[in-house]
């Protein structure tokens, strides 16, 4: 199960994720980001950043991580900066084993200490 709570600031949209990012839930994230991209076209130019808040994520699988990478790439193609924030230590360990921060940019990942 994955819950996504969206909050909008002046220039930042935050997607607060909680639950499991895995094969049965990745579609939710993809749809949410697609909707967001459609909205972006209608929003003023000020929106430049999307935060994916991982604080509530408990589990991931390979499909979930693959989807996260694709979502980040899609948003970047639209010149939107993506940050994955408040990543639980255990989840960050999995990212690190896959060298995801190294691949996508260390600055885009914020691990909870």
């Amino acid at each position: 199960m994955l819950e996504i709570e969206t909050s909008k600031g002046e220039s930042v949209i935050c997607l607060k994720l909680s639950g499991e990012l895995e094969i049965s839930t990745v579609e939710q994230l993809r749809m949410c980001v697609e909707r967001l991209c459609l909205c972006v076209e209608r929003l003023p130019d000020g929106l430049t950043e999307v935060h994916l808040d991982f604080f509530g994520i408990e589990f991931v699988d390979s499909t979930g991580i693959g989807t996260l990478i694709n979502v980040m790439k899609d948003l970047r193609e639209q010149d939107i900066k993506v940050m994955v924030t408040r990543i639980p230590k255990e989840i960050y360990e999995v990212f690190d084993l896959l060298s995801i921060p190294e691949l996508m940019g260390e600055d885009s990942f914020e691990c909870l200490s």
Binding site: D61, S62, I69, L98
Partner: peptide, 22 residues
């Protein structure tokens, strides 16, 4: 923290992910 649900039909997804990344 890593689930294996999507590997029931084969471990290809995981190998593909690792070869695309690390």
């Amino acid at each position: 923290s890593f689930k294996l649900n999507d590997l029931q039909r084969g471990e290809g997804r995981l190998f593909q992910l690792l070869i695309d990344t690390k």
